[in-house]
């Protein structure tokens, strides 16, 4: 009341003296702001390629197994009768740690006369390209699932005009035949949630408490 009276009457118009420059300053500030702030969009961080590239549990591992198919290098000259009860070979294959449950004999799987092949039920060989036939001997149900497409991954076309457009992975792409429990340790980081929904997290007990 007092102020407005002072503004509208009296010689010294203090109200206006303050308001006018204040408005002018605001206006200039605004103009400067809008002209000067060219918010250059911050360049988004690209994703780490390993987070989205498809891999199988043994993808790279398999490529290192150069020995597959070349067992003749040594075993062609094998003289002594191999011992069918070997669980842990001594020299050449000491890296192999058999961890396949009750299936703990090399020759359950590897053909005794021809190391390049795997044992079939009738004593004949299974080629490496059909390795799933080997697993099918003992894991029939899962093999059926695999054939139907419900165990393992398929990539490519789900609608298949020709089978060539679908990539189906063999058992050994995911399971190490010698230690078949599924291992895959390429994990990816948690999401960075936008601040708008941060509240939900604050309501939940902090993760540190939970782990303890």
């Amino acid at each position: 009341m007092n102020n407005s009276a002072a503004g509208s009457s009296g010689d010294k118009n203090w109200g206006l003296v303050l308001v006018v420059p204040a408005c002018a300053v605001l206006f200039i500030l605004f103009v400067v702001f809008t002209l000067a702030t060219s918010d250059e969009p911050t360049v988004a961080q690209p994703l780490e390629p390993s987070w989205f590239t498809p891999t199988t549990a043994r993808g790279e591992d398999l490529q290192n197994k150069v020995m597959v198919g070349s067992c003749y290098l040594c075993h062609a000259y094998w003289t002594g009768l191999p011992d069918p009860d070997v669980v842990r070979p001594q020299f050449a294959h000491s890296a192999i740690q058999l961890d396949h449950g009750a299936n703990d004999r090399c020759y359950n799987c590897h053909l005794i006369q021809d190391r390049n092949k795997y044992t079939a039920n009738d004593g004949s060989g299974i080629m490496h390209t059909n390795v799933e036939q080997l697993c099918a001997r003992c894991h029939g149900l899962i093999y059926n699932d695999w054939v139907a497409g419900t165990h393992g991954v398929q990539r490519g076309q789900w609608m298949t005009p020709t089978a060539f457009e679908r990539q189906n992975f063999k058992c050994t792409h995911c399971h190490d035949p010698h230690a078949p429990a599924f291992k895959f340790e390429k994990y990816t980081p948690p999401p960075v949630w936008p601040e708008q929904i941060e509240r939900q997290r604050a309501e939940a007990p902090p993760p540190s408490e939970k782990t303890e």
């Binding site: 988004a44 994703l47 987070w51 989205f52 994990y187 990816t188 948690p190 999401p191 949630w193």
Partner: peptide, 19 residues
């Protein structure tokens, strides 16, 4: 492993920032 999450981001051109 959450690989699906990131494959989805890549495939569907989801915003990286804000995520």
């Amino acid at each position: 492993c959450r690989k699906c999450v990131y494959a989805c981001m890549k495939e569907n051109n989801l915003s990286r920032d804000p995520q």
